[in-house]
């Protein structure tokens, strides 16, 4: 029983950390809450459903195509809405409100096209779990854990080693300074949307293989990622730690109270952190001198 909880914690945490990281990559360079990310996440699942179930493409081709489409969706939103807004010197609040609008628009579009009922792409995949160390775990859940580890390592390397990664850090620290030193912030932001959206699409697909899909699956999952990002301090290592904390609290919380309270548990943790340690696990002090 205990092993099962450990595995569940790992699965939940892996998922939250992919979402959290994919959101943080965008948030770091743009500094506004891109809520539409939730629908980009959902789109990964529905694109896969479309290509695999409706068009009859092979599963791997469908997944690849779906990730590319999610990436393109993210970039399209950046190019057509956010970039023009930034050009008008829009505040982060305006960008946030626009992102909420796009979220509502696209989420309802998915509802309208595919219906509100649960859709499944699991049929071709083995559903039965296998026994590992006394816990039942399905192959897709193992894939979720492995993917999350690989993604985290690759991203850390990317941000540290590559020129683009360093440019992303520079823009995250100070947009104006980065622009002065010859970095095109618009290009860097577009790249962060590409990476973040592809990751979100991937996460959406993984979730769909694990527990099926509904048009509204995105917002709650995204919020868990955002909580992981804030609690972690907007830093990749911090997000992983925070995701583990959240996964642990939610899965072991079930021992004491019913599983319906999982969301509430996460948000209570968030509020505690915001009040008492707003910079998160690893973050620098966020509050700059405001005078």
């Amino acid at each position: 029983m205990f092993q099962q909880y450990i595995f569940n914690t790992l699965i939940t945490s892996s998922l939250y950390s992919i979402i959290g990281i994919s959101f943080a990559i965008i948030y770091r360079t743009t500094r506004f809450l891109h809520f539409t990310h939730a629908v980009v996440f959902t789109s990964g699942a529905y694109f896969t459903f479309l290509f695999y179930k409706l068009f009859g493409f092979s599963i791997y081709f469908s997944i690849t195509l779906a990730i590319i489409f999610s990436l393109l969706l993210g970039c399209l939103i950046e190019k057509s809405i956010y970039k023009p807004l930034r050009k008008k010197q829009a505040s982060s609040m305006i960008l946030l409100l626009a992102s909420l609008g796009i979220y509502i628009l696209l989420q309802n579009l998915i509802s309208m096209i595919f219906g509100d009922d649960t859709k499944s792409i699991r049929s071709g995949v083995v559903k039965e779990g296998i026994n590992i160390l006394g816990a039942r775990i399905t192959p897709i859940q193992i894939i979720i854990i492995i993917t999350s580890v690989i993604v985290t390592i690759l991203l850390l390397l990317f941000l540290k080693k590559t020129k683009t990664g360093k440019a992303m850090k520079a823009v995250a620290n100070d947009v104006e300074l980065a622009n002065i030193s010859g970095i095109s912030s618009n290009r860097v932001i577009l790249i962060s949307f590409a990476i973040g959206s592809a990751l979100a699409g991937l996460a959406g697909i993984l979730v769909a293989f694990d527990v099926d899909m509904t048009p509204t699956m995105g917002m709650n999952t995204l919020m868990m990622g955002v909580v992981a990002m804030i609690v972690g301090g907007n830093n990749i290592k911090g997000i992983v730690c925070a995701a583990l904390l959240l996964g642990f609290a939610q899965n072991f919380g079930v021992w004491y109270i019913s599983s319906q309270w999982q969301d509430a548990i996460a948000f209570v943790i968030l509020i505690i952190f915001l009040l008492f340690k707003p910079e998160g696990f690893y973050g620098k002090k966020l509050r700059k001198q405001s005078v």
């Binding site: 809450l33 609040m93 804030i230 309270w261 509430a264 948000f267 915001l274 009040l275 707003p278």
Partner: peptide
């Protein structure tokens, strides 16, 4: 204590907690 984006997320959290209750 909580400002701007983080405050928005906090109200978000409050909304979801109340819904859960």
């Amino acid at each position: 204590r909580i400002k701007d984006d983080y405050f928005i997320i906090a109200t978000f959290a409050f909304q979801i907690i109340i819904f859960n209750i």
